[in-house]
């Protein structure tokens, strides 16, 4: 049991600062549990509203750690994280962390619809049952991700790609504006990749922001606005010839991530 970083109750959500970026970290340092080893060292980055930013780096570079720190799952040793201008936890209903598939017990007896409904819990808190509005949100999202026919199916009976889409559907049902995706394209089929790509492109057009941990370098240029490279817990300059997003070299109107 860690210290409660976030409150589980509805009605304590701060309003976003209209001028703030979706996410900014300022010299963020995070230690592994135990506290002696540094997992992230003074990471500063920015995700503008409506930007799709890739987080690239080898295994163990700290990609997941960064996403978890932003989601409030890990305590911050020093530095700061601001989500829509608020500290972590003040408006966490606007942030969705999409875990890797392996973090979930897929044998648990819940249906796809019920699984996606859990995205609404952040708006409910203790003792409140999901209502009509919550169920309607789930129906809409399931249709959008092509899961409507599978709504009643137990989550373990989905294919890997369908499970990945169910996780994305849950984040959409939450109505989050900043999505933190941990390797969403890992070990999924081509059809699911295309489906997820299409949905995330739509989401960007709706002004949603995304920070996506990935090591699929081939797709960076067409799927993302910019990229941040992590190595051994620190932001590093992009390797020669690597995609860094147009604005990384010349500031553009979208105002995406900057490193350092």
């Amino acid at each position: 049991m860690s210290d409660p970083l976030l409150p589980y109750s509805r009605g304590r959500h701060a309003d976003p600062d209209p001028d703030a970026p979706a996410l900014s970290t300022d010299r963020l340092t995070v230690c592994y549990s135990g506290g002696d080893r540094v997992a992230l060292r003074a990471v500063s980055l920015r995700v503008a509203r409506g930007a799709r930013v890739a987080l690239v780096g080898p295994n163990g570079a700290g990609k997941s750690t960064l996403l978890k720190a932003v989601a409030g799952l890990l305590p911050v040793a020093s530095g700061g994280v601001k989500v829509y201008g608020n500290p972590v936890g003040a408006c966490h209903h606007r942030v969705a962390y999409l875990p890797q598939r392996g973090d979930i017990d897929w044998t648990f007896p819940v249906s796809v619809a019920r699984f996606v409904l859990a995205g609404r819990y952040v708006h409910l808190g203790w003792l409140r049952r999901p209502g009509r509005r919550d169920r309607d949100a789930v129906t809409t999202v399931l249709e959008r991700l092509g899961l409507a026919d599978l709504a009643g199916r137990q989550i373990g009976r989905l294919s890997g790609g369908q499970q990945q889409r169910a996780i994305l559907a849950r984040a959409l049902a939450q109505g989050a504006d900043l999505l933190l995706l941990d390797e969403p394209l890992n070990a999924v089929d081509a059809a699911t990749r295309d489906a997820i790509d299409a949905v995330t492109a739509d989401l960007r057009d709706e002004g949603k922001s995304m920070l996506v941990a990935t090591h699929d370098l081939g797709r960076l240029a067409n799927s993302f606005d910019s990229a941040v490279y992590l190595e051994a817990g620190a932001v590093v300059p992009p390797p020669a010839g690597a995609f860094c997003g147009a604005p990384c070299c010349a500031p553009a109107e979208r105002g995406p991530a900057w490193a350092g």
């Binding site: 589980y8 799952l73 962390y97 979930i104 989550i155």
Partner: peptide
């Protein structure tokens, strides 16, 4: 019955529960 959705969620996805501020240890 009262804590059904919390017990259910922390059973299959403790990480998501924690993101919501719901501690699986509780």
């Amino acid at each position: 019955a009262l804590f059904h959705k919390e017990l259910e969620l922390t059973s299959y996805d403790p990480t998501h529960a924690e993101v919501l501020g719901l501690r699986p240890g509780l």
